[in-house]
């Protein structure tokens, strides 16, 4: 079973060279720590920055420079700043190659829910509805089951939707799965030491298993 850092590390392997990537709040933010040295990536922060760098040293902290998770941040050489309209303009114009975000539920046809539990919790959609409506490629980082032990990979989402038919891949503490165009979670990889049986039990939506399922490989 993977911890959050390992989920981030596995997702980092998905990032293509010379790509523009938007990272959501939570586990996705950690992905930036695991980019292989031979991969050139430019991170977009939807509050108005391309070329986001690592967290600052104490003396570099600038309250005017934050990421979309409201954390203090730095800029890399070649960074560019812009306003929120241009930021979502480049998102909807599909200039971003990959969006990585968290989810409360994902359905077997790629619907995602991640902003609200009616009557209990409301975070708001922030930029997520824009990102999922226009992203070329979406990878979801999340736990396979919720705190009550219920599957988050479902035949259909039960929570209010963020977007429809948009998620392409999911990385959880148990597995890597892709969502097939015709529907269904296709099991691609198992976390080290996790059996196919465990993944079956944790997946309520249609799970497609073909042949031997390899374990995830880490350096």
């Amino acid at each position: 079973m993977l911890d959050k850092e390992a989920i981030a590390k596995r997702i980092a392997q998905e990032i293509q060279n010379n790509s523009y990537v938007n990272l959501g709040i939570g586990i996705p933010t950690l992905v930036a720590n695991y980019i292989p040295n031979n991969i050139n990536v430019c991170f977009q922060s939807e509050n108005g920055l391309l070329g986001m760098g690592p967290f600052p040293k104490e003396i570099e902290v600038d309250p005017d420079l934050i990421n979309a998770g409201k954390q203090t941040i730095t800029m890399l050489p070649g960074a560019a700043l812009f306003d929120s309209a241009m930021s979502f303009g480049m998102i909807h114009a599909q200039k971003i190659d990959l969006t990585i975000l968290g989810a409360m539920e994902v359905s077997e046809n790629g619907d995602i829910a991640n902003w609200k539990i009616p009557g209990k919790m409301v975070k708001g959609m922030g930029g997520a509805m824009d990102l999922v409506a226009s992203a070329k490629n979406i990878i979801v980082a999340m736990q396979h089951v919720n705190k009550a032990g219920e599957s988050k990979l479902l035949p259909a989402c039960t929570l209010p939707l963020t977007g429809i038919r948009c998620v392409k891949k999911i990385v959880t503490e148990l597995a890597v799965l892709s969502i097939l165009p015709e529907g269904g979670f296709k099991l691609l990889e198992r976390a080290p030491g996790v059996s196919v049986e465990t993944i079956k039990k944790a997946t309520l939506g249609k799970l497609i298993i073909e042949g031997e399922i390899p374990e995830m490989a880490f350096d």
Partner: peptide
């Protein structure tokens, strides 16, 4: 009224 962030900007 919660609305998408891009919609707010646009």
């Amino acid at each position: 009224e919660l609305i998408p962030q891009g919609t707010l900007a646009f």
